[in-house]
Amino acid sequence: MIDFVKDVRLWFAPQRLRDEGGTPDYRFSLANERTFLAWIRTALALVGGGFAVDQFLPDLRWGVRVGMALALLAVGALCALRAVNHWVRCERAMRRGEDLPVSRFPVLLSLGVGLVAVAMVVVVLFGWTAPR
């Protein structure tokens, strides 16, 4: 938890990030930036999915529809914040010459997306839709 607070402080302090270790080859920093952007796109896709569930699945029951939309939006927001944190940690590790940080977030996210997909299949198969 303390480490996380330190990481969050780095989000706001470019100078403190620059004080760590030496500047890596700019190509490594750019690769880290692209990974960050890919995560931001993932977050945007999840947020867009939240909007889409609400707008394009009107036949679902209100609870199912809003619940799924909220879950997608929450995961999207989490994904975006975690993208910054991971970017900062990778940048710092490269500056210090340490190993890149490992993370179980990708596994959790893919399991979550898989579960939502299975849930959608079940919802559609068993016809838990609003009565016409």
Binding site: W11, T23, Y26, I40, V47, G76, A80, L81, V88
Partner: peptide, 21 residues
């Protein structure tokens, strides 16, 4: 390198869109 401010900005705009939703 990418400024932390820009990274944080891009992430916060995404979070703000989610919050608005």
């Amino acid at each position: 390198g990418l400024a932390p401010r820009s990274a944080l900005g891009a992430a916060l705009f995404t979070v703000a869109l989610a919050g608005m939703a």
